[in-house]
Structures are given as structure tokens and as C-alpha cells.
Design a protein around this nucleic acid. Structure first.
Length: 539
RNA sequence: GCCCUUGUAGUUCAAUGGAUAGAACAGCUCCGUCCUAAGGAGUAGAUGUAGGUUCGAUUCCUACCGAGGGCACCA
């Protein structure tokens, strides 16, 4: 159900609609938004500007007329709006009453604060992280995980039933490379073996390709045993990382499963595919895309066919209303083609398959990037940051996730390790620390004597007011950064208050003031939860 | 060559077609007896270029310039 602060907004929208009707401007599409400047009130609308265009009238006149109608409107709660005024070129601003603002604080400590019902009752499958067994868990997987986990939680905040899925490549040349290397150098970890095998691939191509065939056909018991061991160890290792990151998957899909499914599917749908040079392809040019190979000339399903097989595998696990995949930017065009093919085979899936893309994470300092030469694994980044953060893994994870989630998904991230941990900026630890302060304050207050001394602060509820909207917008757009941006603002508002006012004085604390602290604590905690960032008790 | 994504203060990021483009870091000026100063207050500073649509454009359209990615048997 919607929170009451949404009701204020909804009632404003309703009142405007009625007022517009009275003016003879029935169907205009206006917005009620948060003004960029708090001096302009708590909500504002461009209704008069839009209506003036239709009525061919002066926007300010229309705004004034609307204000008159709105002031006597019964659609607005009688005591929730303190002031309505026209301003600027024709905006109408709404200032909430102190009573309504006090309500916000009461709402914020209630169960369900920040939730909405955008996806109420829908079944959503979110696929993300997608590392490959036998290979290293790299930074890209970290990004996919951070974004996917947050989106899953945003769906949940929107009332959806979410299943988390992880799709992993447990077959292919990369496996052969790793196993080949492991036989040469058994002392290596699987991740290292893969790196070594890749480097040696060019010089031992025939041998490794032959090994790949042996793995695929399962003809050599010793190789089989190595494969099973490597797969198991990789997956267990990944499981440790998920635990650190705060993710728990419901489904695991593997290419060993989707390959045969995809192969079968492509064979069955000759109306969608055609053969060319011995390969089975999808002619993307017909729909403004490009051609891609689904089954190669050796009869092996490519990644494209496997992705189709994945659709089948997902459907087998149950019906879903939406299926989202979080993956890297460079697969954009690939997904367009695969989706075009998939929608021909499964017309019922049209508009149900969503994708979110992420960019690269680029480290600014050579300090961490030069380690062991080339690849920076996800774990080494977490490990290095944990050391920098005085052995606080939750702070390190928060720092990384926040850097990923504070900006629009899809753009590359310039990752400055020092900045990510800074308590003075726009960072995960900054928000975590504000939360810790509220919690330590609440703990200290337990030993203090509470008084019924009056307390009032209007700025805090005026910021708190917009939390559910930030979450709702993030849910709707599947853009976690709206929440991250909001949390920075709230943390800053709190810190500013905290610095200027001392709450516990001589062992006494105002009950009313504590209520504000509690509301902020709940909001920061919920916000971090939605982002999938750890919410520490102390730092 | 074609297609996709992208260009905002010195730097890293925001801004559902609306008001004076909002933060953070770095810079400059300040603030420590006290709930964890691992903080706070103030100040200066930006929409790649050229057109177009609109009452109004960072946002939509066109061209150009710059950056990243993709375009047949890898994933």
C-alpha cells in the first residue's frame, strides 16, 4: 500500500485535475514534482504552463486562477497544505503544513516505509553477476552483481516476487585452457591456471582444442575428475564472494544446460533461422540489425543459441512477468539480435525481456591496478579496500557498491579507491557513517533520561518526505542511483543538524528529538538495504 | 564504412521539456572542552560546436567534432 506522504502528492494531483476541469482544460498532462529549490515549497506543478498553451492564455493568469480554485479545493486534505502560491513563469508551489510534516516523521518509523506497489504481485526473474567457473571473478562481475542485487531489491520494494538467477559458462575453450594449465602446474589456483592457459593458448592451440573435445565428450576419467573438481571449487569460491556481497541466488543456470536446449530450439525453428556457409544464422538485417551465427558449421551451438536455451531454461523454472538480465555494454547489439530471434519463437515474451547494461570500472590509481601485472579480480579489489578501511569488509563492500550505484547504469565508472572510502564526500562510507551516528545516538539515549521537551525541525521531514519517491522512481526506471543520490542528501542533512545541535545534554534527551533520529535511522537503513549495501551498527 | 552508447565546473557524478543547471572532491575563508571531527559553515567555478522544434532545451531532432563499444561461426 502507498504511504501517506504519497497520499499528499496524490491528493495534490487530484485537486489539480479537478481545478483544470473547472477551467475548461480537461486533459492536460502535467507533473507534480519536487522543486529543485526548497524555497519553492515541497511540491510544485507545471499544470498552469501546460494549460495556458491549450487555452491560449497567459500562464501567470492561469496559475493565479488555478491557485484560487485549489485554495478552496476539497480534494486537498484540509490541514495538510499550508500554502499554495503561483511563482515564476507560471509554476504553482505547495508548501506542506507542519502537521503534515510531523506525519512524515511518524510514517518513516513505520514498517514498509519506502516501499511502493509498482510491481505488486508480479513475478520477476533477475539474472546477474554471471561469472564463469574456472575463470577469475573480475571487476565486471562485481558491477553486474552490485547493480543486479540492487535492482532485485528495488523490484521487491515495489511489491514483486523476485527470483535471483546466475548464469555461468561451465563449458567451452576457457575450461580447456584452465584444465590444460592445471595439468602443467597443479600448484596453481583455478583462476591462475586459466590466466596461464590463456597466455599459452596460441602456442598450444591444437593440444588445448583437442582437450576441449575430450572434456566435451567425457572420454577421459582423469580429465573428468579434474573438471568436476575445478567446477566444484570455482563455484564454492564464488559462493564465498556472494556471501561477502550479500547476494543469495535462487537459480543457477549453466551453459552445459542451455547449449543442448538452444541447439534443439534452433533446429525446431527453421522459419526463424537460415543456413549460410554451413552455419545456422539469424538474418538480423531484415529487422535493422546484423546477422549472427547461432550454430556454427561444426554443429556446435554458439553463445547466441545458448542464450536462447537460457530462455527455455528460465521458462522451465516457472512463469514470470518480467525477466531482466544485467550485463556489460558490449553485449548490447548481441542482445538485440538474440531478443529479436527469441521474440519470433516466443511471441508471448515480447516486452517481458528486459536488459540493463553496465560499463567498465576503471581504476584511477596504478597502486591497485598494477598488482601481478594485468587482471584485477573482484576479490583483490575487496581485499585491498578492506585493508584500507581498517579491516572493515562491510565498509569496503559499501564503498565499491556505492561507487557503482551512485551514477546512471551503463556508463563507465572511474573508480578512485581513496575517494570511494572517503567519509567526506559522496561515498558509501559517508552514508554508512551517518547511519552509525544515528544508531550510536539512539544507544546513548537509552542511558539518558527522556523529557517531553518540545523539539521542532522542519528541514529534516521535508527531506524525509521524498524518500519513498526516490525509491519509487528508482524502481520504475530500474536506476538505483536515484536512491544513492537521495541518501547522500539525507546523510548530509543529518550531519549538518548533528554538528549544530547537541541532543543529549546533562544526561537528558528530548523524546521528540529522538523520534527524528529514529526516522532518519530507519530511512538511511532502508535506503542502504535497497542498494544492497551493508548497514553497520558501528564504525 | 555501418550501427549502438556517450560528451555538464579543474576532477568525479546528478538534473521525469520548466524556475537562479544540483552535489562531492580539489581551491580559497572559517568552525574543535561536548552524542565517534572519520564532521560542519561559507566562497568561487560548468551544459563539446552549429543549426532546428518549443512560450521554454542539459533533456527532443539534424549535422559536425571528441570518447567508448559492436558488426559470421569467441563468450
Amino acid at each position: 500500500m502507498l504511504n501517506s506522504n504519497f497520499m499528499v502528492r496524490t491528493s495534490i494531483e487530484k485537486a489539480i485535475q479537478e481545478a483544470l476541469k473547472e477551467l475548461g482544460a480537461g486533459n492536460v498532462s502535467f507533473v507534480v514534482e519536487r522543486p529543485s529549490d526548497m524555497a519553492h515549497g515541497d511540491y510544485s506543478t507545471n499544470a498552469a504552463l501546460v494549460a495556458a498553451k491549450i487555452l491560449k492564455a497567459n500562464p501567470r493568469d492561469i496559475a493565479n486562477k488555478l491557485v484560487d480554485i485549489l485554495r478552496s479545493s476539497t480534494a486537498l486534505g484540509s490541514d495538510s497544505i499550508q500554502k499554495i502560491e503561483s511563482a515564476g513563469a507560471g509554476f504553482i508551489n505547495f508548501h506542506l503544513s507542519n502537521e503534515a510534516l510531523a506525519d512524515v516523521v511518524r510514517e518513516a518509523v513505520k514498517e514498509g516505509w519506502g516501499n511502493n506497489n509498482i510491481y505488486l504481485g508480479q513475478k520477476v526473474l533477475v539474472e546477474y553477476t554471471d561469472p564463469n567457473p574456472f575463470k577469475e571473478f573480475h571487476i565486471g562481475h562485481l558491477m553486474s552483481n552490485a547493480i543486479g542485487e540492487s535492482i532485485a531489491r528495488l523490484f521487491e520494494a515495489g511489491g514483486a516476487e523476485v527470483a535471483r538467477a546466475n548464469y555461468q559458462g561451465d563449458v567451452g575453450v576457457h575450461v580447456a585452457k584452465a584444465i590444460w594449465a592445471k595439468r602443467q602446474k597443479p600448484e596453481m589456483s583455478w583462476g591462475e591456471a586459466y590466466v596461464y592457459g590463456s597466455a599459452e593458448y596460441e602456442n598450444n592451440k591444437e593440444e588445448i582444442d583437442q582437450l576441449n573435445k575430450v572434456i566435451y565428450e567425457k572420454t577421459d576419467p582423469e580429465v573428468n575428475a579434474l573438471y568436476d573438481q575445478g567446477r566444484k571449487q570455482s563455484l564454492e569460491h564464488f559462493e564465498d564472494i556472494y556471501k561477502t556481497l550479500g547476494t543469495k541466488f535462487d537459480y543457477y543456470f549453466f551453459e552445459s544446460e542451455t547449449g543442448p536446449l538452444g541447439l534443439d530450439l534452433v533446429h525446431k525453428h527453421s522459419e526463424v533461422f537460415e543456413t549460410s556457409d554451413g552455419a545456422t544464422i539469424f538474418r538480423g538485417e531484415n529487422v535493422g540489425l546484423h546477422t549472427r551465427v547461432f550454430i556454427n558449421s561444426k554443429g556446435i551451438p554458439t553463445y547466441e543459441a545458448k542464450e536462447l536455451g537460457l530462455v527455455v531454461a528460465k521458462k522451465k523454472r516457472g512463469q514470470f512477468d518480467l525477466s531482466l538480465t544485467v550485463t556489460a555494454n558490449e553485449t548490447r547489439d548481441f542482445f538485440r539480435v538474440v531478443r529479436a530471434a527469441a521474440e519470433r519463437i516466443f511471441p508471448d515474451l515480447e516486452d517481458k525481456m528486459l536488459t540493463r547494461f553496465h560499463g567498465f570500472l576503471k581504476l584511477t590509481t596504478g597502486k591497485m591496478s598494477s598488482r601481478l601485472g594485468n587482471v584485477i579480480t573482484g576479490e583483490s579489489l575487496i581485499k585491498d579496500l578492506t585493508e584500507e578501511a581498517r579491516d572493515r569488509e562491510d565498509v569496503a563492500v559499501g564503498a565499491i557498491k556505492f561507487m557503482v550505484l551512485r551514477q546512471n547504469t551503463g556508463k563507465d565508472i572511474i573508480f578512485d579507491p581513496e575517494k570511494s572510502l572517503s567519509l567526506e564526500g559522496d561515498s558509501g562510507p559517508y552514508v554508512q557513517y551517518a547511519l552509525v551516528r544515528t544508531r550510536s545516538l539512539l544507544r546513548a539515549a537509552k542511558d539518558a533520561k527522556t523529557t517531553d521537551k518540545e523539539f521542532s525541525n522542519l528541514e529534516i521531514p521535508r527531506v524525509l518526505l521524498h524518500f519513498p519517491e526516490a525509491v519509487a522512481r528508482a524502481s520504475l526506471e530500474l536506476e538505483p542511483h536515484h536512491v544513492a543520490t537521495y541518501l547522500t542528501e539525507l546523510a548530509s542533512t543529518f550531519n549538518s543538524w548533528y554538528a549544530s545541535e547537541r541532543l543529549i545534554v546533562d544526561g537528558e534527551v528530548s523524546d521528540a528529538a529522538l523520534f527524528f533520529v529514529q526516522a532518519i535511522e530507519r530511512t538511511l537503513a532502508k535506503g542502504l538495504e535497497v542498494l544492497g549495501i551493508p548497514a553497520p551498527q558501528e564504525m
